[in-house]
Design a protein around this nucleic acid. Structure first.
Lengths: 210, 210, 210, 210
DNA sequence: CATGAATGAGACTTCATTCAT
DNA sequence: AATGAATGAAGTCTCATTCAT
């Protein structure tokens, strides 16, 4: 039976990278700090990643995959378009909140990561914003309005996550992020003129998913 | 008559720094690139700035001063609280739009600039957000709601500026920023439940302020 | 069998540093010159020393340790106080003579090494002078006289080493240093009014050091 | 009437250089610090000195000239060789004590001043030591003994000046230097086997000659 | 004579990446 | 698969010196 004591080195490194990027930002994070955190030698890093950039990218993509998976999962059984939207947005927030360090990495610490990497980050933002935009469109908004609205929501979330992630990472999850997001959800719903969902069942993530 | 061909070196350097920081981000910008852009020797940089960090900070503070000045100016003759708010927000947008490169620097490229500098940037964000929050409070919002709302607006703007600033800086001012902002202004106004100003006289910046 | 061709890099660098500091003095010695002399890349230096200062300090401390060890060794079996003193002073001289380059570094080329490093050097001088002073006191000199006398001896030695070390380091050990020192030993002994040791057995250093 | 308010710029600069070299040592002293202390522009320095080295050299030579002049003056009316010697040595000490900063520059802070300059400093030492040596020879010492003895005396003095000059320059002249020197004078006199002068009239310098 | 802005060589140091073991 | 010593390019900053005014 494999899988026991069969720690995946790549996984160890990604976890370490998350911590280090989260704490120091892309540029100030050193490969050495990552390998030390992971408990392996410097050279080992390059058995699993082509470069520091590559590692960062893997981290970012993993986050987006998680978000997307959570969103898809959340949309099941949604009654109508605006309900799908509502659940989607909460799925995003919950995923970020479940992994503060990762959120910190992608949302706050990514800028200044160098030309093509940054480009790639923006494209991920775009993809996601477009996703939201379509929901908004289906909910009855004008296409242009929908796209701007999606970006606005994304930006607002970004800022809140930034504020929330600013405290030292040891502080653990901050309980108010969800309240804060609750407020902007209502704000945007009114702004978009959407009907507030009767059953705001928004199930927070199960504990222990870092 | 002096004053002609009397280029201010510090100014030249700040302009160059704006371009270079804007294009490469804080970390990837090199002092050499700045001095080359400014057309002077490497050492000259240090006659005007104590360090790379110092130069960046000067740039940031210049932007914030401009914004604050524009806001103060815009608020004169506002009829009531929500009108002050409305004008303030437009003043911010106009200032940013007048200087796309600078906006790009501060809004998009600042992260990863190193601990205390980043801290300082956040404090500037805080100051400004608090400013908006007070207007919202005066307009009748709950204090907590006002603070979250201010941050949300700031974040939404940030994202829009980011998208808009993403194209190469040579492209010049993008005409749609103001339209985009117009949309989110309406969105937030509805979200906040504020009355839409009858005379949305929003005077775009005077020409020639790059 | 390992251990052959198993050059210690740190040792190589210290040897190179000794040469370079000795030839150019602390300030004019460059890290690059040291690594080139040691035959390695510039970055390698920082695997073994935190800084240029740190490397210099290591060199200085190594010399002082050697001197102290030699002194302690030499004092064994000394009949009385002035005999201990006599042997101690010769131990110092022999250690310096065994490693002309190192002596040159510490005695002649140390000044101008920067505030706290210089302070540290002086403290080492102090420690050693105090050591001599106590022997002098035990030999019957007045405490004040003993301290001044110790410093005088140290300074006299310093000058002689300086003169002797002034020729290019390739010249190798200069045979006259010990004769010169013999002269000032007699001079000081008479000056201090101490009895000249009957058995001036002063065993020069064993061969093969440095 | 010339001479009034007709400050000599070169003199101002030398005075400033004395302070700056004395405080920071040759390498850490900057030309800018010197000109700022002298109250003139950076470029002015080069109207009076070919280089930083040249300025330092001028300072050193000035000190040696002073010493030599004082020595020559002191020797007048000396009864016999050992008396000439006695007076000469005190003349040296008095000159150094009259100008602590200058002494500090030449004695303690000169090392690491760069190849040829250092060579030059040593030659000055040599000249002076030879001068003493001849007196010793005339006093009856063996030529070799005389030369070593001269150097030893010089070195001892050097160390004492170093210790004495180590405190911050603001502390002013330290009263004990002359006492200290008195002690080593007696020490060397006994060591050399010379008769102690009956009239140890050693007139300290007149006050106010910095 | 005097100025002081400008220069540019060169110093120290960091760190992503490689490669022999 | 893993190591970690070694590399070397590149970055920030200092400062003696020059020269147009």
């Amino acid at each position: 039976m494999a899988g026991f004591e069969e720690r995946d080195r790549r996984e160890d490194l990604l976890i370490a990278a998350q911590q280090v990027f989260g704490r120091y930002g892309y540029h100030d994070a050193t490969v050495r700090a990552i390998t030390e955190t992971a408990g392996c030698a410097a050279g080992t890093f390059y058995l699993y990643f082509a470069s520091k950039e590559d590692c960062f990218l893997a981290l970012v993509e993993r986050l987006y995959e998680r978000i997307m998976a959570a969103v898809v999962e959340a949309r099941r059984g949604a009654a109508h378009a605006s309900d799908k939207l509502y659940r989607s947005l909460w799925a995003v927030v919950d995923t970020l909140a479940a992994d503060p360090e990762l959120a910190r990495v992608v949302m706050v610490r990514a800028a200044g990561a160098g030309s093509w990497l940054e480009e790639r980050l923006w494209r991920l933002h775009d993809t996601f914003a477009e996703f939201i935009a379509q929901d908004l469109e289906e909910s009855g908004l004008d296409p242009v309005e929908a796209r701007t609205g999606a970006r606005a929501w994304f930006g607002a979330l970004n800022e809140l996550v930034g504020v929330w992630a600013r405290r030292p990472p040891e502080a653990g999850a901050t309980p108010t992020l969800e309240e804060e997001v609750g407020r902007i959800q209502r704000l945007f719903w009114r702004g978009w003129g959407l009907p507030w969902p009767e059953t705001p069942v928004h199930s927070p993530r199960p504990a222990g998913s870092a």
